[in-house]
């Protein structure tokens, strides 16, 4: 197998790409390539990963222009005919160094969107009964496996155009709470995702759903939030 021609972003926002030759291997992931560069070619390369099996959400990068989870992205899936691979940090987030972005703005939006559960029960109460096949529970099933990787956030044009926009992941999280029969703060959640920075700002581009490695469709959840918000507003509840 021939070598891969890899270009990796070095430095902060003012940085640029550096070129590396990396031996091609069977079943090689993009994270393997980055790890090879860091271990064999340049120990100063900064990047982030933890689980390597698609659970932690820390390894997302821009690979040949597209945001992806690198630990589960096979090189064969993304290289072009020339064997070129370009790896950059995620879009829409401040670059700390090399491939590491500051995820704080991303998670701050979860807090701003009221992404916390609020229930009324204590440990002394009995379990809540939620029928597994109820529409609300199914809607939650479709949205709950988010690993917080930021791929959707980096892929959303609205995030670029509207810096205050809460973004697909935070809104997706709030959608699961609004559907949660145990959550007692539905109106607070809806209030938090209303307005110019909220769910109404979504253009239904569907890039988030297209790119989400967990096959979640934040677009569907956001559409649900828009409906719930409209209903509550028309009823004068907000």
């Amino acid at each position: 197998m021939s070598d891969l021609h890899v270009r990796i972003w070095r430095g902060d926002a003012e940085g640029g790409f550096s070129a590396y030759q990396v031996p091609r291997q069977e079943s090689q992931t993009v994270l393997d390539v980055v790890t090879y560069v860091q271990r064999q070619l340049d120990a100063t390369l900064a990047y982030r990963f933890a689980c390597r099996v698609g659970m932690c959400g820390s390894c997302a990068m821009t690979v040949n222009g597209v945001a992806r989870w690198t630990c589960r992205t096979h090189v064969s899936k993304v290289i072009d005919d020339q064997g070129a691979l370009e790896i950059a940090p995620l879009n829409h987030l401040p670059i700390v160094r090399d491939l590491v972005t500051d995820m704080a703005p991303f998670f701050d939006q979860w807090a701003a969107a009221s992404g916390q559960f609020s229930g009324a029960k204590t440990r002394h109460d009995d379990f809540a009964t939620v029928p597994p096949d109820s529409p609300a529970r199914r809607a939650i099933d479709a949205a709950i496996e988010c690993i917080g990787c930021g791929v959707c956030y980096a892929s959303c044009d609205t995030v670029a155009w509207n810096p205050a926009y809460l973004g697909p992941a935070a809104l997706n999280r709030v959608w699961t709470l609004v559907q949660d029969a145990r959550d007692t703060a539905t109106l607070d959640h809806l209030r938090a995702v209303s307005g110019d920075a909220g769910c109404q700002a979504c253009h239904t581009h569907v890039s988030c759903a297209e790119r989400c490695p967990k096959n979640i469709s934040p677009t569907v959840g956001i559409a649900g939030l828009k409906r719930a918000l409209t209903k509550a507003t028309l009823k004068g509840q907000l």
């Binding site: 209030r191 209303s194 307005g195 110019d196 909220g198 109404q200 918000l229 409209t230 507003t233 028309l234 907000l238």
Partner: peptide, 14 residues
């Protein structure tokens, strides 16, 4: 402008 008014504008737009 309040988020509430922004929501009303959005509803008016739709």
């Amino acid at each position: 402008m309040s988020a509430r008014l922004q929501t009303w504008l959005w509803i008016a737009q739709r």
